[in-house]
Design a protein around this nucleic acid. Sequence first.
RNA 1: GGAGAGGUGCGAGAGCGGCCGAAUCGGGCAGUCUCGAAAACUGCUGUCGGGGUAACUCGACCGUGGGUUCGAAUCCCACCCUCUCCGCCA
Length: 428
Amino acid sequence: MYDSKQLRDNLDGIRTALGHRGHDVPWDVIQKLTEERRTLTTQVEQLRHELKKGSEEVARLRRAKEPAEDGIAAMKRVGDRIKALEGGLGGVEDTLGDLALRIPNLPHQSVPKGHAASDNLEVRRWGTIPSFLQPPKPHWDIGESLGILDFDRAAKIAGARFALLTGAGARLERALINYMLDLHTGQHGYREVLPPLMVNRQAMTGTGQLPKFEDDLFRVRDDDYYLIPTAEVPVTNLHREEILAEDRLPIRYTAYTPCFRREAGSYGKDTRGLIRLHQFNKVELVAFTTPERSYEELERLTGHAEFILQDLGLPYRVVTLCTGDMGFSAAKTYDIEVWLPSQQQYREISSCSNFEAFQARRANIKYRRGGGKKEAGTEFVHTLNGSGLAVGRTLVAILENCQQPDGSVLIPSSLRPYMGGLERIRKE
RNA sequence: GGAGAGGUGCGAGAGCGGCCGAAUCGGGCAGUCUCGAAAACUGCUGUCGGGGUAACUCGACCGUGGGUUCGAAUCCCACCCUCUCCGCCA
């Protein structure tokens, strides 16, 4: 989101910098409305000044017990004119505000230009891809034959794109959540939060899901609530409408939440298994920091997510998303992709982004410079977040990468304490 | 869901419809004093937008949105949130 000053002074600059990212933005309408707002604002403010002075004069006359009928009549006319102009101004501001909320963020200079995932840039790879004597089985086969995954009953209870974990499978999911949270709070310095799973419209607007992506969200029928598609929403909005002290920054939170996504428009994609569900678990990392340090923080945060995969021994790679593949609100995004043997490819398991001031501007999250010194002005913070990690996909990666010739699955040693010491999941 | 109370600046907390962007206290910052610190005293201290190199100046903001009025933090209506009591409930 851009403020009125940016839209007025640098509309063409924004348009050029966005390139094809801003292809569906009605730039001409915005320009016209910006000018209209300016002239209307000037007129309204002049009239208001007149009204204020006139009213003060009326007050003075009243105190002096002098007749004020002329002034009152004149001010009534001014008031009527203000009301009329304000009606128009309000309309202009509403449409302009809505349009401004639909302009995507500017990509950082280091982001590769491109239109699709094939234009993403691989940054690094980690780990050794496991070799198998027989073709590796997909996780849904492994899970169902072990009796820990049940898609038929999930469909009976809810429908397509839902999963049901049982026994050691449910335990493994829970183990992963606890393991990730313990690691991020214990070793990486994040504060754990357990936020609401339903949020209001303002929160969704603050992080950028609304107004443009309403179709991707589950909405509650009789109340103005939405199910969160990611913990990013409640956790980033924790500090909405706040001014933070600079010496409190960076603020780092981690949160486990279920995430709910309609997955509209993804018909036919990943229809089997745990990869793409309407409900999935995720441990999220969120950071608030200063503009100077946000890119350093992005590397850190990405490293924290990568560490989980390293510790679990799962091979992965990191890619920088190109301008065309990045999300609406991001200035730069690294995707971490884990190796899936059954698909013989890397699949996204984490997405780590710096939003710079884009969300902070929408959600009005600022910080006071200088920790209370003389030069203390306020400025928007930079916000970041990343999955650390998507829990269901981590479970998929474990099932597939750690599958054994006898059909069992070897549990990574870091998780065993969370599994009651269990080393291997066998058919029950 | 029912009954009552309340939402004001960084915090606490005043505020007869005009002289209220808002008393007072606390916090923070600067200064005096001190070798330094504490205490005491003095001064400064909200956000956003417009204009101006600047001093400054204009406008908006007292939960949100409407309304009454020449004029609203103050009156009226609706909604949201918080607190107390009752009911219901994990």
